[in-house]
């Protein structure tokens, strides 16, 4: 009995180290994440901006900031911009990734040099997005190499100003997002496909299913949880879209308001020190990403309970 008691206190003595080792994380998280979150929410209820050189506020105005950013059409417009560019990039991204993952995981296809291809398609994911956007800006500029190439090949008779039109700029943004993320998604989906019991594929083959049938009837339904994970994490990433459109359009000080994303809008408010509106916008984004996070969290915990 006494021995038992001694052992327990011994364990308790060890377990206090659990708290000690957590101190750095908790302190840093509280100071640099939680306090800023509270300040952000608090600021969203105040009128607080610069009018020229004059500081207006802070005056308590309740939910007026929230009403303003929706009523003046900014949030609906920029939300739509963000979603259009995200969807336009995500659809080809998920199709390509599914196709590639199925090929890489297919034991009968035996793709040679799969490691090389995986290395290449993942690379754009690591490239500095702002530098990559700057590169595309120079390549697609009026006097840039793409226009020269097209004219030399006789496709265009005169330079096409890609970055002055909404459709072409959005296409470039979506294309870049797809290019930067399809390798990552391919690797995630492959990990999911490797987890599927091989016996299921063999059984389907024995039953005479074609590879297309196996893909749509076996692989896809079993991949559904991972597809959901990819969809939602990508959506959260899409809502954060900033570097590429910001650098490509130079922060949208021109007529191209069709490219402005939610975070670019937030960035503009932060630079012009319109803290009330920036706060309301942040809280709105926080709520959306919070809901999406809960879905991801539910997904990952239900996976681990299996």
């Amino acid at each position: 009995m006494a021995k038992e008691k001694k052992k327990t206190s011994q364990v308790v003595k060890y377990n206090k180290w659990g708290y000690i080792f957590l101190i750095p994380f908790i302190v840093v998280y509280l100071v640099f994440q939680l306090i800023p979150l509270i300040t952000t929410i608090y600021n969203s209820f105040f009128e607080n901006y610069m009018s020229g050189l004059k500081q207006v506020g802070p005056n308590w105005i309740g939910l007026t900031n929230y009403i303003t950013i929706f009523k003046n059409g900014d949030v609906p417009k920029y939300f739509a911009n963000t979603m259009i560019m995200w969807i336009a990039g995500f659809i080809p991204q998920i199709v390509l990734s599914l196709l590639l993952a199925a090929w890489f995981a297919d034991t009968r296809l035996r793709i040679k040099a799969a490691g090389f291809y995986k290395t290449v398609i993942y690379m754009p994911n690591l490239i500095m997005a702002s530098a990559f956007a700057m590169l595309f800006f120079t390549l697609f500029a009026k006097t840039g190499p793409i226009n020269s190439l097209m004219i030399q090949m006789g496709v265009f008779t005169e330079p096409y100003e890609f970055l002055t039109y909404t459709a072409s700029t959005r296409t470039i943004v979506a294309f870049m997002n797809c290019l930067m993320w399809f390798g990552n998604t391919t690797i995630l989906l492959m990990a999911g496909m490797m987890g599927i019991d091989n016996a299921l594929f063999e059984a389907a083959q024995v039953d005479g299913a074609t590879s297309t049938q196996v893909f749509f009837r076996v692989t896809l339904p079993l991949l559904r949880p991972i597809l959901l994970f990819v969809l939602i994490t990508s959506l959260i990433g899409g809502l954060q879209m900033f570097d590429v459109p910001q650098v490509l359009t130079n922060g949208d000080k021109t007529a191209l308001r069709q490219i402005t994303t939610m975070i670019m809008y937030l960035n503009n408010h932060l630079y012009s020190k319109n803290f009330g509106m920036a706060g309301a916008l942040s809280v709105f984004l926080f709520i959306i990403t919070g809901i999406l996070s809960i879905i991801v969290y539910k997904f990952s915990t239900s996976e681990s309970n299996e």
């Binding site: 640099f32 800023p36 979150l37 900033f242 975070i263 942040s282 990403t289 996070s293």
Partner: peptide, 16 residues
């Protein structure tokens, strides 16, 4: 909180 983007707390972060 893993998926919460840092951008949403940027305002409070600057003030801090």
């Amino acid at each position: 909180v893993m998926m919460i983007p840092t951008q949403v707390t940027a305002l409070g972060f600057i003030k801090l």
